[in-house]
């Protein structure tokens, strides 16, 4: 198994870290970039908070309309598709 050695992880700036935040919360970065960002987050409170904030907002969007829909559509579709 290949592991990334902490010592070889490049130190990145806050600006570089911020650019990776969306990809990170969307689980869209792997390997070196991910390791670099995670290493940064261990040492930078500001970027850590930023990630937590973006995750929180994303989770609020994820919650939208869950189970909020009416049964009306299903009934209409069912009725329509079953009549044939």
């Amino acid at each position: 198994m290949k592991t990334i050695n902490k010592k070889t992880v490049k130190t990145i700036s806050c600006d570089q870290a911020i650019k990776l935040v969306f990809s990170y919360i969307d689980d869209e970065i792997r390997g070196t970039h991910r390791a670099e960002l995670e290493h940064h987050l261990e040492t930078c409170r500001h970027c850590f908070d930023r990630v937590a904030f973006e995750k929180l907002l994303k989770s609020r969007l994820r919650r939208l309309n869950v189970g909020g829909s009416s049964k009306r559509l299903r009934q209409r579709i069912d009725t329509l598709l079953e009549q044939f």
Binding site: N65, S69, R76, D78
Partner: peptide, 28 residues
């Protein structure tokens, strides 16, 4: 194919157009 995805489609439509009647039209 469609019936098991109806809830997904409606939720997606609702997140795009908010109003229930419009979302239903969009799914239809």
């Amino acid at each position: 194919l469609v019936l098991p995805l109806l809830d997904d489609l409606e939720r997606f439509a609702l997140s795009l157009c908010h109003r229930e009647d419009l979302a239903e039209e969009l799914v239809a």
